[in-house]
Structure formats: C-alpha cells, structure tokens
Amino acid sequence: MIEVRHVKKTYGKKQNKFVALDDVNFTIPDGASVAILGKSGSGKSTLMHAMSGLDRPEEGEVVIDGENILKLKAKAVDKFRATKMSFIFQSFFVQANETCYDNVSLPLEIARVPKRERRAKVQKALDAVELSDKIKSKARNLSGGQKQRLAIARAIVNEPTILFADEPTGNLDSTTGEVIENLLFDYNKKNGTTLIIVTHDPDLAKKCDMQLFIKDGKIASQVNEQKKPKVTKIPVSSRRAQ
C-alpha cells in the first residue's frame, strides 16, 4: 500500500516561489494500476518523483508498506528503489552501446544480485517482453517499440513491487503503444505489481483501476473504475526475499 499524506513541494525562493505539489493526499492499494493525469507542469512528474524517493518534498509523508520513505536516509532510499521499485520512461533510456543483456542486467547489479543468478532472471525478463532472441544485440539496433520493451524487461527483471511508468507510450505509434500498454497491464495483473502510469492520454488512463487528475499541484479529482479488477494477490513478504 502506498499512502501519500499532505505532501507539499515548492521550487524556487521568495517571489519566484512555485508550488509544485500542494497538500496532496491519496492511497493506492497493493496491486492496483493507477494513472496520474494532468497537463504539462501540473505537477504529475513531481508527484511520481516524490513517491519514488527521487525527490524530497518539504512536508508530508509517503508511506510504502508502513515505512515513510521521506524519513529514510539516502542509502536506505537507494536500496528501496533498487529492490522494490522500477521505472519506465518516455525516452526509454536504454544504453544504446550496450547489449540487451547488459541493459537488463543493470538493476540486478545495482541490487547486488549474485552473478550466477542474473542470467536466468535476465532471460526470464526478456522472454516476458519477447526479446529473448535479441539478448546479444546492441540496443541501438532495436526499433522504438523494441527499445521500450527492453526498458520494460529492465524494469521487471528484479521483480519490483511498484512499477512507475512516465509516459510509456509517448514516443510510440498507437499500434506499438498498445503492445507496450498490454505488456504493462498483463504484468500488473499477473504479478500483482502496483503500476503507476504518469500520462496525459485519457484512453490509457481509462484502462487503469484508478485515475488521479492533477491540476496546479493539487488532486483535482480521483476516479475509481467501477469494476474492481480481480487481482491474484501474492503477499509482498513472500514474493520477495529482500
């Protein structure tokens, strides 16, 4: 469960002061898929950064599985991100010069997964995105859709409990975008991973269990989809050793 309580974030000082997040409150249940919607500059990205511990709001709490990550030390937050969270970006951010294997292996290395366990995990992640035949290819030789699939493989390889996706289909055509969407939602349903998508695409948002509309740093409205998804929930504690 992710609880966001009274989060406030401001940029700049004095007359240049800009409130990016203003007393934001909401709760996301485990295994839910959430869309954060809003225009550019509405604060949706800032909210994602605050929830992932990349950014530190001045006020409020972000409680994940009972722990306020804003109170944790930098080292602990890093460990939290390395083991429990993952990211997918609009611009993929795959390392073009590296092979698919090395791209996917990076989060495992960061999380200090022993080398002998890595290959199987990388293989499994690439299988999930149907890129196992590209394991030795350089990422630069992949198409846009393949790159984003590679990014998904990198995001799911360490079996995170929360998956952040920042405009995951923003740079893709609609057909490819749909493939990526399906991959993300399938993974969310199958593994009970909480999926948080930052987007300004209402169609994508409609597929989520929950929609948060952000305007001027505030939650303008929160929509919970009528039909609650049947999630085969696996308890977090038993799913992950760390």
Binding site: A74, D78, A82, M85, F87, P107, I110
Partner: peptide, 15 residues
C-alpha cells in the same frame, strides 16, 4: 542520462 537512470534505479552516489 545514463547517470540519472542508474541513480533512479537505486545506484548509490558513492558507487
């Protein structure tokens, strides 16, 4: 960007 990504994925500043 690579540094940003590694940090987002939880790589420590020290590393």
């Amino acid at each position: 960007q690579q540094i940003g990504l590694m940090k987002a994925l939880g790589m420590r500043s020290k590393d």
